[in-house]
Structure formats: structure tokens, C-alpha cells
Simulated scan of single mutants.
Amino acid sequence: MTFNPLQERGIPLDRQIRNWRELNVTPIDPDHADPYTRCRIITMNGIEIEAIMFSHHFSRRCPDLEVRQKMAETRYVEAQQQKAVNWLLPGLNSVLETTIGYEQVAVDLTAWVARMEPDPYLKQAYQFGVLEDFDHLYRYANLYEMIEHRKAEKIVDQLTEVMPGRPTKMHHRHPIDNVRDHYDKDRAAPISKLHALTIMSAEQQTMNFYMNVGPTYMEPIARQLYQEIGLIEEEHVTHYESLVDPGETWWEQLLNHEYNECYLYHSFMETESDPKVKAIWELHLNMELEHLRIAADLFRRHDGRDPEQVVAPTLPQPVTFEPNKGYLRELIATQIDYTTLGTGYVQEAHERFQRFQEQIHDAVEPASERVIDENRARSGEEYRLETEGTHPLYSLRSH
């Protein structure tokens, strides 16, 4: 059944404010919840944070008082939504357990987007990035075993494998090689715009999380690993945000943000296994339909176009969290030795890449390598979770 969010009526804005009792959501059970329920929660938290920050940045540049007031109204509701969503995560989880959940999101959400993306250049951007998040999951899983004496399979279940991807130490590139070509706003498929906005938001959330929680650890290896991967997440945000056409007007970006929230809440409402969480997705969808109506009216008034010229007339197929093991193994077998050069990709460690590697590492073994060695020394072997077959051998060729 098709669903056109531009034609649906949501909850009127003046009825969307919730009291403390309504915001006091029951967190999921960390021991029995579907791991993909946690992934959906983490994803929507990132989407809501991006919506809030985009609204703030837009308001700082908008001279129209009436528009700024309307955006303040919707932004307050978005902030309540973010609190309700993020507070679904259980307080019993350690920072590392939440981190592993973040990386499971990065792996399976980005892999799904890569599979569904119709534009070959954009697809390559997601394929490139997911092999790095895959390796981050492996590094954090070893840190988790080393300092909390637990195994990541407790968190990811058997849904996502934990094994090496593109080695984390190879992710450090010269900043100019993290900037991609952007899609053409007038030619790109509507789903391509939603994909770019979704993955950018998810990676931005991860970057913010790591830069804040990293120094809260006492263990030197944990502090150093968060610092290292936190810098790579900055590279990833640069990588993904550069895919978005900077020629989109503020009104067009606002429309895309609100449409994407409707798309994702509808997707997760359709696929959620937890009835209580599903009810929150449905409530938030009905709120976002009104936010989208407001954004569409502003778009018509200030941009002079119809929203149907920018967004899809019906929602695309639902975003789905599902195992991507075979797809990821294929990428590992064929793209493990990729790096970037300018806005493209190469399979050779070119001169600028090598110079930057020497500069950032300076003959010091990075934490991402040491965490594996130290866990192997303490636990007898490194931690992996391989559910089928054997892991392809890989190497990054140097010239």
C-alpha cells in the first residue's frame, strides 16, 4: 500500500507537547530486546539530533521572525522526540555496549543503503565507508572483551559478524581526500537524497558521541582508541555530508529533513518487533506529518515551487535492518584495499596517503592495532564472531 506523507494529516502542532509523564518512556530490556530494535533507536536519535541542529543553523540565518518562531515550535517538539527516543536505551548499558550498538547501526544501515542506492557513485561511497565501520566494530569488540570481560555477541547476537574489515590504521587520510563529489539536486533520485541525509546523520551522531565519551575512560588504551576512531568519524562525516548538493536552498533542505523523518518513522513502524517502541514510532510519525506539512507550506511560499518537484510522491520501500553478512564478505573480498584520491577511489597507497600515514602515526603503533595485541595477550586470542565460512585474506598494497 502506497503512503504519500504530503497528503496525510498529522497531529496539530499545538497538541504535540508532551508532559513529563508522557516523556518518561520505559527503556528496552538490554538482555531480551531485539538488537535491531536498539539499532532503530540509535538511528532515530541521530536523525532527530540532525533535525534539531539543522533547525538551529537555519534559524541563525533566517531574518523572518514569523519563520523563526514557527521553527522554534517544531524544534521544541523535535527535542522532545529526541529525548523520548534516546531515553529508550537502558541505563544499564555501559558506554562500550552502547558504542558496539552504534557500530552495528553503522554496519547494517550503511550496507542496506549501499545495496539499495541506484547511483553508482553514491553506492561506492557507502561501500567504501561500511568496510571501515565494520573494522571499528571489531576493534571495539576486542576492547569490550579486554576491559569488561564480555563478548560482543551478547549485543549484536548472530545478526552482524565481528571480524576485521579495512584496517582502522589505514583509515587516516589527507583531509582533502575525504571530500566527495555531490549529487545533482535536479537530477538525483529522491531516494538518493534520503540515503545521503540518513547516513550523514547517523555518522554525525557517532562522531559526537565518541568525542564526548572517549575521555571518560580511565584505561589508556580505551581513551586512545576512542580518540583514534573519533577522528575517523570526523572523516566519515566529511565524506557523507559532501555528497549532499550545497546548491539546495534552506527551504529545500528543510523539506528533505522533514520528509526523511516521516520516511524513517514509517519504515521503523512497519518493521518494529517491540509493540511499545512501535507505538512511539507511530506517534512520532503522526507528529512529523504535521512538521512536513509546515515545511511544505514554507517551501511553496519562499522557494516558489511545489514540494512534489523535490520529494517522491510516495514513500520508498521501508528502510530495513537485516543481516548483510554475504554482502559485506563480498566487499571485503573485492574492496578491502581501496583508499581515496581526490573525489575518487584507488587501490594503491598513493604518495599523499603514505605521507599522511607517516605524519599521523609517526612510527607509533596506533591504538586500533594495540587493542588487538593486548586483548590477545590477556584473553589468549583476539575476539571474533564469524558465523559462516572463513574470512578473506587482505592486504593494502603499497607503492
Rank of each mutant, 00 (worst) to 15 (best):
T98I: 15
G165W: 01
M218W: 15
G165M: 02
R187M: 11
R180Q: 08
G214S: 08
D157K: 02
N212K: 15
V95P: 06
V105G: 00
Q205V: 05
P215I: 12
E203T: 09
R150T: 00
D177W: 01
W112N: 09
H174G: 04
Y140N: 09
P175I: 10
K185M: 11
K151H: 12
P120W: 08
D186K: 04
L131G: 00
G129T: 00
D119L: 07
H136E: 07
T99M: 12
N93W: 14
N208H: 13
R180S: 05
R166Y: 06
A188G: 03
E203V: 11
G165Q: 01
R173W: 09
R166P: 05
D108I: 02
V156T: 06
L159F: 13
K185W: 10
Q158E: 14
D157T: 02
A188W: 05
M163C: 09
N178R: 07
N212L: 15
D186W: 07
Q104C: 01
P215H: 14
A106D: 02
Q158M: 13
V179T: 06
P190Q: 04
A106W: 01
D186L: 08
A141W: 00
Y144C: 00
Y140W: 13
K154G: 03
M218D: 15
H195T: 02
Q127V: 00
L131D: 01
A202S: 06
I176Q: 14
H171S: 10
D157M: 04
T206F: 11
D181P: 02
V130C: 06
H174E: 11
M207W: 10
R166L: 10
H195I: 08
F128I: 05
D133P: 00
Y126D: 13
L109S: 04
Q127S: 00
T98M: 15
D135M: 10
L137A: 07
D181K: 12
H195A: 10
E132I: 11
S201A: 15
R187W: 08
H182S: 13
M163L: 12
Y140C: 10
Q158S: 14
T198R: 04
V107Y: 12
L194E: 01
M163W: 06
D184L: 03
M218R: 15
T198H: 03
A152C: 10
Y217E: 11
N212V: 15
Y138G: 00
M116K: 12
Y138L: 04
N208E: 14
E219W: 05
V213F: 12
H182T: 07
N93V: 12
R150P: 00
N93L: 15
K154T: 11
